[in-house]
Amino acid sequence: MQWLNEPAHWSSSHDRVIVTTSSKTDFWRITHYDFIRDNGHFYFERVSTDFVMEVDISGSYRDLYDQAGLMIRADEQHWVKAGIEYVDGVQNLSAVVTHNYSDWSMTPLPLPPLALRLRVERRQEAIHISYLDANLKYVLLRLAYFPIGPEVQVGIMCASPEGNGFEVMFDRYRLTRL
């Protein structure tokens, strides 16, 4: 795996990656906020097939928009990120799909788990974003369109758009090529 925008502080051991995000980092394009940011942290590998990607995410979220999750990226104008995003003191399940412009969907987690198990699947042009609920069943958060290309980058991502950074742990990351 390799970094896009490597953080100053991170470590990896066995099945865990720990990152302290840098301040003022994000992935976003234009919509509503009228700016482009492509400086979030993304630890990725390249895939040219359909796949299933999973990870457990836990973080010390504290500032507006602190975020961590999984990402699929074709280039700086075409990507999907999904995971936890901290908004108004609440952890939210969040998904952003970007095709030149970013959109954003989220749902609050009033009782957030200690760690969220997230799954992202690519089946042709469809991206299935799911999370493991308290009953240990995967629940679909979003189904999104993502064009088929010869190769995409996939992996873990995190960012701190407004704050000074936070620590996040990614455990048991798995990528299964289909």
Rank of each mutant, 00 (worst) to 15 (best):
N5Y: 11
N5P: 14
H9E: 11
S12G: 06
S13Y: 11
H14K: 15
D15Q: 10
D15Y: 09
I18L: 12
T20S: 05
S23I: 05
T25I: 07
D26S: 10
F27S: 05
F27G: 07
W28F: 01
T31L: 03
H32Q: 09
H32D: 13
Y33I: 13
I36A: 08
R37S: 13
N39I: 05
G40E: 06
H41R: 05
F42I: 10
E45L: 07
V47F: 11
V47K: 13
V52M: 09
D56V: 01
I57W: 04
G59Q: 12
G59P: 13
S60Y: 03
L64M: 14
D66R: 14
D66L: 08
G69Y: 00
M71L: 03
R73C: 08
D75S: 00
Q77L: 00
K81V: 02
G83V: 05
Y86W: 13
D88L: 09
Q91H: 10
L93P: 00
A95V: 15
S102V: 06
T107L: 07
L109K: 07
L109A: 06
P110A: 08
P110Y: 10
V120D: 06
E121Q: 15
R123A: 10
R123N: 12
A126K: 11
I127A: 02
I127N: 01
H128I: 08
I129T: 04
L132M: 09
D133C: 13
A134Y: 04
N135R: 13
L141V: 00
P147T: 06
G149E: 06
E151G: 02
E151Q: 13
E151A: 11
V152S: 03
V152C: 10
V154T: 04
G155D: 09
I156T: 11
I156C: 13
M157R: 11
S160L: 05
E162H: 15
G165Y: 06
E167H: 01
F170I: 03
D171A: 09
R172T: 02
Y173C: 00
L175P: 01
R177P: 01
L178K: 08
